[in-house]
Design a protein around this nucleic acid. Structure first.
Lengths: 204, 204, 204, 204
DNA sequence: ACTTCCGGGACATCCCGTTATT
DNA sequence: AATAACGGGATGTCCCGGAAGT
């Protein structure tokens, strides 16, 4: 593949990602993708012989990868609670700064295809699974109890808060979710005091 | 309105609600709505002169109303924590029992229209707001601190868990969310001990 | 027919006439007629069992009748040349004053149906014929030569000028047509000097 | 543009022009255009991305261009009066020979869109303006007085006569208009006698 | 490796006319 | 005399995919 071809492919993918992130699978009309990317229509099926589904799947995966890097960056030098706070802060800024367009790049497509058993739905499931795994690893490294369950809950909390914030055009749900996430994770683990009670949420 | 008309209108709305719940705004093609409801096509714009947007908005509101009644029923004779547990239990059953089709009747449309400033998005926002208010009232009645924030967080948690469960075709996220919700709400309020510390999440 | 019925019928006809005059047969959608007249839709086929064609034909005839009265009024106390001038003046005022909507109430429908052999086209032909006859009678009374041909030419001139004025959004074509019409009719007929040179258009 | 594409585009345009000429904007249903041209429906929006309005505008302009060439051909070797006579003769033949379908390719659309402020109406206005200018130039070259006004009047006369002839299914109005046009233009300009009185319509 | 163009179907919308009901 | 609701077809538009032609 020549350099020009790679550039075209990347621009197509970028346009598809943005449109998908904004409004889901059906919002990303191929004509619009072609128009916004400036690519010729014929090129689309050269670069994405699998058609629209392949294009959207790659767009979703690329958007997910972008977020994964963001998570990794937020985790540097922070414990789990700090990481979640930082991640939510970045997500809130992204969302508000884009006019409430850029939320989770996976969620809309996931819901639109949830009933089917398509590769697209499986890709979304895979992405969510990888995020959960990444966060669970982070919690496990800190010695938190039941890291898998907590990771799932934290992801659900973030996704749900993103949904509410986008719908209300108001970042408050994200801030409230951040506070709740800190409570769910619990206090910083003191050195030499491996976890076991951190998830207690109410005083005896 | 005649009896026949009311029946047709209800059937149209039912079909639209089911299709919307399954896959969002674009999944609910009007042709399909007409086909599945058995209604004559000419009647559609008689009953919904506002076109598809009016139809989908009413379908979303109807689906939301259905869930609100479910919430109200789940709350009878239970405290807040028990209510959330019961609600999630019902949602999980509904979701799994429908072949992962019936999740939140609002979420998909909310995400698809989040970027726009349409009446549809505002309707979704309104519905979420009413759910938050209902749950906040429940928490306030028990004397829980900061009931608004907690209600938002609980709704986000449920919505996010529904999203993950639908995407994974696995109810585990909902069960994990239920456990986390109980922790977030805290212990039952003892009589004579009005709230104030219930949101503490870790022992000193 | 009761009074209320007559009123409804008249309002329907008025709305149809206005819409037809503005943009022809297809511009007068029955739904719009019903909406603008405030009449119930069911009434339409009670008052006009012949359907849309009957309605539009009556609307065209009513518009034509209105103009015929206008012509008759303009002719009072004027000779033929003065009448044409006055008629064009009124038409120009009507056209400009209505935002270039009210031109000839017959022409658009006539052109739209010219190819067919429908009652509608025949009605238009009839109306034009009656206008030609009326003007020919006026010319004959003044002793002008070949009144039928001149009447046809004058009508053509007026209709063509209305068409140009409406299209250009500029009344100049009507004023130019008025001047030409005076030239075509010629000098006032002197008593005792029966016609023969009246069509001279320039002074010696 | 490939050869095949150009052919398809031309056939679409031809069908649209014929249907428009016959009965105006609404008579030219796109389905019928597609059917009569034999073009694939998908090609329509490839060749005319502006949709129906673009198609009809181009059809009107093409019909107008065809007539402009006809005028130019009729003017060769004839003075202004002879040109008008020849033009009307050709128009009458065209009209009668087509079963009263082919009149002015602009008029119907012009009237249907006269009230709006659409590009379509402006295109019609432009076409009429160019015809007036062409005829005014012809008159000016012969030294006729006030060529612009006369050109407008002649165009109005021809358009009006076409309207009447189409409506009546009778070419007489055109013949009468031709005679009147000759009178309006006046005698041939004698060499060495630059205009000033040429608009005299009757010999002393 | 890319463009033009074809292909036909689905979309939401609006059309005109009719039927039961009152 | 009028009303609510039906009935289905036509409209213009846009869709995604593939084929022909460089």
């Amino acid at each position: 593949m020549g350099m020009k071809g790679a550039g075209t492919r990347a621009r197509i993918l970028d346009a598809a990602r943005e449109l998908t992130e904004t409004g889901g699978y059906f919002n990303a009309g191929l004509n619009q993708v072609v128009a916004e990317s400036g690519a010729p229509k014929g090129s689309l099926y050269f670069h994405f012989p699998g058609g629209k589904d392949q294009l959207i799947e790659e767009a979703v995966r690329q958007g997910a990868e972008e977020l994964a890097e963001l998570f990794a960056h937020a985790a540097e030098g922070r414990d789990a609670a700090g990481t979640v706070t930082a991640v939510i802060e970045v997500l809130a800024g992204r969302l508000e700064g884009s006019g409430w367009r850029r939320g989770c790049p996976v969620a809309t497509v996931a819901l639109e295809t949830a009933a089917a058993d398509s590769p697209l739905r499986r890709a979304c499931s895979e992405v969510y699974g990888s995020w959960e795994a990444a966060f669970a690893a982070r919690l496990r490294a800190e010695g938190r109890p039941d890291p898998e369950a907590t990771a799932t809950v934290l992801l659900a909390l973030v996704e749900g808060a993103l949904l509410l914030a986008r719908t209300h055009h108001d970042r408050a749900p994200l801030d409230r979710a951040a506070a709740a996430a800190r409570r769910l994770i619990g206090d910083p683990v003191a050195p030499g005091r491996p976890g076991g009670e951190e998830v207690r949420t109410a005083a005896p």
